[in-house]
Simulated scan of single mutants.
Amino acid sequence: MPPVIETRALTKRYGSRTAVDSLDLKVQPGCVFGLIGPNGSGKTTTLRMLLDIIRPSSGQALVLGTPPRSGGPALRRRIGYIPGDLRLSSRARGRTVLEHFAQISAPVPAGRVETLAERLGLDLSRPVRTLSKGNRQKLGLVQAFMHDPDLLVLDEPTSGLDPLVQREFLEMVAEVRASGRTVLLSSHVLSEIQQSADQVAVLSLGKVVAQGDVASLRLNRLRHVRASLAPASGTEKMLENELAAAGLRGSVTWQAGTARVRGTLDGGVDAFIKVLARHRILDLSVEEPDLEESVLQLYGGPDAAARDVQKGPG
């Protein structure tokens, strides 16, 4: 089957600044494809070009087999979209706003809006302008999903949602994939990508710096660590060497016989914990950095060699 989305050297320039640089992507049918990277990496610009909200400076794109520029309303009806800067401020009630969207999208199955609203905990009777940011986001999700589109394009879709609603959203995405339809998902949230995406492209400054499945891209390998130890006397230098060998990139400082360890681990925590276990541990904290930091530390900027990681370990 042909790709649902295919780009060839897709580029967008704003004057002397290049927002997206020679982007080559293929999104296969029936998958969830994650587009991730730090702010300014070109994610939103890419999505807007695919939807013909903005036009590329050069290159080509096909969405559902059609160039976005010539697809017109027929193509747009096959796509569900929620923008990253969703702005809804109507005096109308939520139900009325969705009825308006339904008139310009593909037909909406009977009861579909009510079912989605119930799943997300959205009150459709309230005026949109009285809704919180999270509830406006829910309204945006309902309008994106309600007509069962062939392709969902979701830009930071869980912004403002509480954890329970985020979990429900991920179940909705899984249902779309199970039905053979396709999702293109832009996100800053690593756990969201880990739980939902089949394939991922990592963007930095408009370039793809890595591409593959989430496990092979190692986005969850980094850890911030802090620990306080009471090591045996005379083991100070040995402790520092052992921690460095276990993958610690950071420092060990000493205060009144207490070792304070701070830094970052690139890799598993097993070797690090085994070193600590030889001493009396007074305090320990292991945290996962945010997605932006993971991308920048693991893959650097676009000057780093692009990686095309095949599925599988390593």
Rank of each mutant, 00 (worst) to 15 (best):
I36Y: 00
G37M: 02
P38E: 09
N39C: 13
G40R: 05
K43G: 05
K43E: 10
T44C: 10
T45H: 02
L47I: 15
L51E: 02
D52S: 15
I53M: 13
I53A: 14
R55L: 14
P56E: 04
P56M: 08
S57Q: 11
S57N: 10
S57K: 09
S58R: 13
S58Y: 07
Q60H: 14
Q60K: 15
V63P: 00
V63S: 03
L64R: 03
L64Q: 08
G65L: 13
G65V: 13
T66K: 11
S70M: 12
P73D: 10
A74I: 08
L75Y: 03
R76K: 15
R77G: 03
R78G: 03
I79Y: 02
I82V: 15
P83I: 13
D85H: 14
L86N: 05
R87W: 11
L88T: 08
L88W: 03
S90E: 12
A92Q: 13
A92S: 14
R93C: 10
T96L: 06
V97P: 02
L98K: 02
L98W: 02
E99K: 12
H100S: 14
Q103A: 15
S105A: 14
P109N: 04
P109V: 02
R112Y: 02
V113E: 00
E114A: 15
T115M: 07
L116Q: 04
A117Q: 04
G121V: 09
L122H: 06
D123G: 12
R126F: 06
R126M: 11
P127S: 12
P127G: 09
V128L: 06
V128I: 09
R129F: 13
R129V: 12
T130Q: 14
T130L: 10
L131S: 07
S132Y: 10
S132C: 13
K133E: 13
N135V: 11
N135S: 15
L139C: 08
L139S: 01
G140C: 08
Q143W: 04
H147S: 04
H147L: 01
P149N: 09
P149W: 00
V153E: 01
V153R: 00
L154T: 03
D155F: 06
E156P: 03
P157W: 03
P157D: 08
T158Q: 04
T158P: 01
S159H: 11
L161N: 04
V165P: 00
Q166C: 15
R167C: 09
E168C: 11
F169A: 02
F169L: 09
L170I: 10
M172W: 02
E175N: 10
R177V: 07
